[in-house]
Simulated scan of single mutants.
Amino acid sequence: MERIVIGTRGSVLALWQANYVKESLRKAYPNWQVELKIVKTKGDKILDVPLAKIGGKGLFTKELETLLLENVIDIAVHSLKDVPVEFIDGLGLAAITKREDVRDSFLSSAYKDIESLPKGARVGTTSLRRTMQLKRLRSDLDCISLRGNVQTRLKRLEDGEFDAIILAQAGVNRLEIKGVKYVLPLEFMIPAMGQAALGVECKRDSEIYEKLAFLNDTNSLFETSCEREFVKTLEGGCQVPIGVNAVFKQGCITLRAILGLPSGEEILEDSIESKVESVEDCQNLGRALALKFIALGAKDILIRAQNWEF
């Protein structure tokens, strides 16, 4: 019997994700003994500072990657949107799972949607991407950093600290959370790269690396490869105001993206579409759209966004 240790963060959502992979492995390889190891990351420890102000890459992955390299764990399961586009030498994504709903959701105790919020309403979100797009629609909204696990965020909404909060619909669905008033359409709120997919990270020279390929979903692999290459070409990290979403249907990818200042000003938005047959085709498409953004001054906007005062 082979013993496999999965590294994961300790939140309810992270444990759902890790257990999903654990059960998938047990079904595929009944002779494997699969167990979880809970790890606290830098992003889990620092909860009183907005993510964008902490700085650095891999806020939710670095500690797990260190344990992979030290052979303490065999696999790390991440929300793919948290995985940096550049990997530490020796590590890679062995699989990208089928996506849940990629959209964001609006939760509020008193209001049905963003348009019905009163002037100056307090909206909780951890994301500069969401803040940028909310401010574009309603510049009067007071977008406030909302850290902590999903249960903590919901409790703060319930306690009246916020008029509304924005969460990823994927997490809402996975945890069967009730009370979503409105799922934000892609035309209004473009998601983060890789949103709603899980990334399964492993040492490239591991004996089990290739054995994890069954977890791959072709649509998800194509879409997220496109999105991640877009961000990689822009040299943007996980905590910058970039939304990018690829949809793969009938052999064709439609890629939409947005970036701008957190204030909702100086926004760039564009899309591109092409037939694709391989991951390389998808990456080329993501790169092509990123180069269009760069030609329009995207890198200057992102530099200013990273130095934004909160």
Rank of each mutant, 00 (worst) to 15 (best):
L146N: 03
V150H: 04
G124T: 08
V123W: 00
A121D: 07
I165V: 14
G171C: 13
R122P: 07
D142R: 06
K112F: 02
F162K: 01
L137F: 10
L146H: 00
A170K: 11
L167D: 07
R156N: 12
N173W: 08
K119D: 14
D140T: 06
N149A: 01
V123T: 11
V150L: 15
A121T: 14
G124H: 00
R153D: 10
E176C: 12
L157R: 01
L107E: 09
A170Y: 12
G148C: 02
I166T: 09
L134V: 09
E158A: 13
I166Y: 02
Q169W: 07
T131K: 00
D140W: 03
T152R: 05
R129G: 05
L107Y: 11
E176Y: 12
K155P: 08
R147K: 04
E158K: 15
I165D: 00
L175V: 14
C143E: 05
L117Y: 02
S145P: 15
L141Y: 04
S116R: 05
R136D: 08
L117S: 03
D142Q: 14
A164N: 07
D113W: 00
Q133T: 08
K112W: 02
R153H: 10
T125G: 05
A121Y: 06
A168I: 11
K155M: 13
K119A: 15
A121Q: 07
D142H: 07
R136Y: 12
K135T: 08
L117E: 04
R153S: 09
F162H: 09
P118W: 06
V150K: 00
L117H: 01
I166L: 01
R147E: 15
T125S: 10
G120N: 14
K155T: 13
E158W: 13
I114E: 01
Q151T: 14
G120L: 13
V172T: 14
D159W: 11
I114R: 00
S108W: 04
V172N: 09
D113Y: 01
C143V: 15
S139I: 09
Q169K: 08
F162G: 11
L107W: 12
L117A: 05
I166S: 02
G148A: 03
R147C: 12
D159N: 15
S139E: 10
L134P: 02
E161I: 11
R147W: 05
K135Y: 01
L146W: 02
E161V: 11
L175E: 11
L167N: 05
L154M: 14
D142I: 12
P118T: 11
L154V: 13
A168R: 12
L137K: 01
R147V: 09
